[in-house]
Design a protein around this nucleic acid. Structure first.
Lengths: 246, 246
DNA sequence: CGTTGTGAACGTCTTCACAGCA
DNA sequence: TGCTGTGAAGACGTTCACAACG
């Protein structure tokens, strides 16, 4: 499914073709590796790194093995080297200008979010359809009218767009982003977007997340103590039980 | 993994034990069903509903089959009835008071987010550690100091907590929420949380979402036109290609 | 000796294809 | 006839267990 090249014959190819599930975990590993680097740790074992990420060590080793053989047996992984390799695999060695459409409460929060810049993402332009919001200054950026979207996206070479509009406006905004050349979209609007082949969409739906938790609560409220163990991964329903500090 | 009861012997049990992947899609189906109901549609086929959700019809039918046999062969599903059944399965027939900790940009946006109320979630209290924010009025709620967390959570009977603090504060806030009786946590802080067994955590990491899109961009930039088809589901890397309107 | 890297087993999720029913 | 519900097959992801190796 999706987008990664499942390559060369059986058993997944040499180097190319990182599984989706692995790609979804790499940013987490990267965050932890960076924290380790900052605190001066130069080497880390799969056991330690896995514990910090909340996954099993075998999973972590298999994930990293798709990128190459970057560890040293009997020793572990060199933190700085691994940071570089993971960053490169994710395409974070370059700068990604992003545009945000819909500068309401959420759009504001996203425009101000500090976590982007440190990962190679630069909020390059903000757009809103509401004339009353156009011209407003948000974090060094003037909110632009929708008419400016195509020319500005083209000029910036922005490949990633964020939709933070109401649901009703999302598809129209999506179409305009795609027409302007955006090929990756992060959608916060509670709407299913239709896009042409070759355009990637990821969605974040806050209400859906809560509903999944409600399911957990309801199921747990009925029978008594929780009967299961922990699990991990991006597709998992919920994470439960992580005894000690990460 | 996780939390749902995988029950009664082989082949998954009668009625009980909805797979995680299915649970994660139910809120999406529910949203579409509600929209259909509002526009007066009384019956829908698996094909139509699946198209609107961006999944294959067989997947949708299998998903719904875990809840019971609520369709009519040769006809389809009764929209209103299905809305009720899905809501019940998700535990949305009751009201869920939620508390939000960390009323910065994101916390503000969450407190104001309209999508919660319509799904049975009620923002019941807001907390912040910063004395300058305490007392502030956000959407009918006065921001409370952290000292109030335990008593207020207990009084409200809040089972779901949202963490929107900086990463460094997340684990401490999490511990206090758990101590106060919260059993489900939605974490927006970029931190891996350690929780005791029986507490469910779901995380939303905005920066991770962008990094996954960056991976897609980088991979696509190299070889040329996108070589794959579409896919769907909550664990998927990215959704690509959804030709027509949903 | 300790830790990585990985083949093989296992479990889960998706898709196919069609039997079964209204 | 048309659509649902589902067994079976296949794809994917995780875990185990150990060979390979610094």
């Amino acid at each position: 499914m999706t987008v990664s090249r499942r390559a060369t014959g059986p058993g997944r190819a040499r180097g190319r073709g990182v599984p989706d599930a692995t790609v979804a975990r790499l940013p987490l590993y990267l965050r932890i590796l960076r924290a380790l680097a900052e605190q001066g740790t130069s080497t880390v074992s799969s056991e330690e790194l896995a514990a910090a990420a909340g996954v099993k060590s075998a999973k972590l080793r298999k994930d990293l093995s798709y990128l190459g053989s970057y560890g040293t047996r009997g020793v572990g992984y060199d933190v700085a080297y691994l940071v570089y390799q993971v960053s490169r695999e994710l395409g974070l060695t370059q700068d990604w200008p992003i545009v945000i459409v819909g500068i309401g409460n959420l759009g504001h929060a996203l425009a101000n979010y500090g976590g982007f810049a440190s990962r190679g993402f630069r909020v390059a332009a903000l757009f809103d359809a509401d004339p009353r919001r156009v011209g407003e200054l948000v974090e060094d950026h003037e909110v632009l009218p929708m008419g400016e979207l195509a020319p500005v996206v083209g000029e910036l070479g922005a490949a990633i767009g964020v939709i933070a509009t109401p649901a009703g406006a999302a598809q129209g905004v999506c179409d305009r982003l795609v027409a302007a050349g955006v090929r990756s979209i992060l959608n916060f609007a509670p709407a299913v977007l239709a896009v042409p082949d070759g355009v990637a969409v990821r969605k974040v739906d806050l209400s859906i997340e809560l509903q999944i938790l409600a399911f957990h609560e309801q199921r747990n409220a009925v029978p008594g103590p929780v009967p299961d163990g922990a699990g991990s991964g991006p597709g998992e329903l919920v994470q439960t039980g992580r005894r000690s500090r990460a």
